[in-house]
Amino acid sequence: MPIQFRFHPEKAIEAAATFLKLHGKSMKYLGLVKMLYIADRIALERMEQPITGDHYVSMDYGPVLSGVYDLIKGQPVDNALPLWSEYISPRNANVVELLKDPGNEELCEEEEEIIQEVYKKYGHLDPFKVAKWTHDLPEWKDPHGSSIPILVEEILKDFGKTDEEIEEIKQIAIREAYLDEVLNA
């Protein structure tokens, strides 16, 4: 069974809102999903867990956070769409904007630093250039108009993690998902 982190819609909303606040205006949703993916990837490398816990897929414009992309399109993901819609506008043409600030209580300091670092590097670039850059990431496979799941293990191997380290990360993800389930029951 592959590693699967639990999707944290609150953290995804706070991360998206932070990017939108840094941008100061509406943003092309392609740019937002690219920066969220890159931030999750960096968090995996540094913290051995992503910020959002979302599923990753290869799409024509590079890797994408599947749940966040569905939320941007107005499609339900678990029970997250009403919460997402409270803070992030529906996509209008190709842009989204911040409706109100969700704060940042769910994000730790290191996650906030990663988001700021990603925005500083990619936030002012054309999103299509960022998408093209993500095609060079080893986990991206050309889906030819479809989508292909990206395994967390592939990303961790690219960072030089051993099979033993990857197994430990997997066990931690399983324990955290179990605890979340018990605590939220």
Rank of each mutant, 00 (worst) to 15 (best):
P127V: 08
D158G: 15
I169C: 08
E106H: 02
S85V: 03
L107M: 09
D136T: 08
T134N: 04
I166G: 13
Q171C: 00
E109K: 07
F159E: 11
Y119M: 01
S85M: 04
C108M: 12
K141L: 06
E112C: 09
C108G: 15
H135I: 04
F159G: 07
L137P: 04
E153M: 09
P127C: 07
H144Q: 11
V182H: 12
L179G: 00
E97L: 01
Y178R: 10
P143V: 07
K161A: 15
Y122R: 08
Y119C: 06
L156V: 11
A131H: 04
I150D: 02
I172H: 02
L183Y: 11
N92Y: 12
A131S: 14
E164D: 15
P127A: 09
E168V: 09
L99S: 02
V182D: 00
K157D: 10
E110W: 05
P143A: 08
E153S: 15
L179W: 14
K132C: 07
E105G: 11
Q116F: 02
T134E: 04
V118P: 04
L151R: 12
L183P: 00
E117D: 05
E117I: 02
E112W: 03
V95A: 14
Y119D: 06
Y87C: 03
E168N: 11
V152K: 02
K120V: 00
G145R: 04
A173Q: 07
L137I: 01
R91I: 13
I166D: 11
D163Y: 06
K170Q: 06
A80M: 01
G123I: 03
F128K: 07
K120T: 13
N94M: 11
T162Y: 10
A177V: 00
G103Y: 00
Q171M: 12
R175G: 01
I172M: 04
I88V: 08
D180T: 11
A177T: 09
D126C: 10
N94F: 09
V152N: 01
D126A: 07
A173T: 09
I150T: 05
E165T: 12
I115N: 01
V95G: 00
L156Q: 04
I155T: 12
S146G: 11
K161H: 13
S89L: 03
W84K: 09
W84I: 09
L83T: 13
E105K: 10
I88D: 00
C108P: 00
R91Q: 14
I114C: 02
I169W: 12
I166R: 11
N92R: 15
D101M: 13
H124T: 11
L183S: 11
P127D: 09
W140L: 03
G123R: 02
K132V: 12
I150E: 03
L107Y: 01
K170T: 03
E139H: 10
E117M: 05
E86P: 00
L137K: 03
E111P: 03
E168K: 10
E112Y: 05
I148C: 05
D180K: 12
G123V: 02
E111R: 06
K121Y: 00
E112N: 10
E167V: 04
N94H: 08
E176T: 13
L98T: 02
H144T: 07
S147I: 08
L156I: 12
I88F: 02
L151S: 10
E167L: 14
I150A: 06
E113D: 14
L156A: 08
D126G: 04
